[in-house]
Structure formats: C-alpha cells, structure tokens
C-alpha cells in the first residue's frame, strides 16, 4: 500500500472514531474506556506476526513477552468490561425487555 493509502485509512478512522462515540451517555464513560482499552489489545495480532517471522533468540524473547502482555490486555480488557457492565445492569434496572 502506498503512503497516501495508509494516510487515507488513518484519517477516515480518526473521523469514524470521533463519530462513533459522540453520543455516549456519561454513565458509560468508564466502560467505554475499558472497552476501547480491550480493543487496542489487538496489538496481539502484531505481536504474533512479528514473533512468528523471526529467527533471532533476542527478538523471539521480546516477541513472546509482547504476546503475553498483549493477551493480558485483550482478554482481561474484555472480561473486565463485561463485569463492569454486568454490575451496571442490576442497580439501574433500565427500561423493559430485560426481564428478571
């Protein structure tokens, strides 16, 4: 891909990122932060690709460490977001549809 193509993807994603959360209600600020945090755990994909294409032991060690850290970020991030939202649902008992 050319540099311009990367720049296009980047700029469009910036606008999308602003747009997609622009109407968030303030009680959801923390879960949204946590969810976004889990999403950037996708660096795990980068860590796998970088580790899987090296033969050098130093790079392999750094790469494996990166995989462990990225997995903690991704798996832990989604799990903690879900728990956060789970305890949200109970005290607030929102509008119908969500039976007892």
């Amino acid at each position: 891909m050319s540099s311009t193509a990367w720049l296009t993807v980047f700029v469009l994603a910036v606008f999308l990122g602003f747009e997609v959360i622009s109407k968030v209600s303030s009680i959801l600020h923390t879960p949204l932060m946590s969810g976004a945090n889990a999403i950037h755990g996708v660096i795990l994909v980068g860590a796998i690709i970088a580790t899987g294409s090296t033969d050098d032991n130093v790079q392999l060690t750094i790469g494996l460490l990166a995989i462990v850290m990225a997995t903690v970020n991704m798996v832990g991030g989604f799990a903690v977001t879900d728990r956060m939202l789970g305890m949200f649902a109970k005290p607030r008992q929102p509008r119908g549809g969500d039976g007892p």
Binding site: A13, V14, F15, G17, L32, A36, N37, H40
Partner: peptide, 8 residues
C-alpha cells in the same frame, strides 16, 4: 483499530 481507539 488503533486509530479508532486513539480518536475515540
């Protein structure tokens, strides 16, 4: 994904 998180 990174840009989405960065912007939002």
């Amino acid at each position: 994904a990174g840009t989405l998180v960065g912007a939002s």
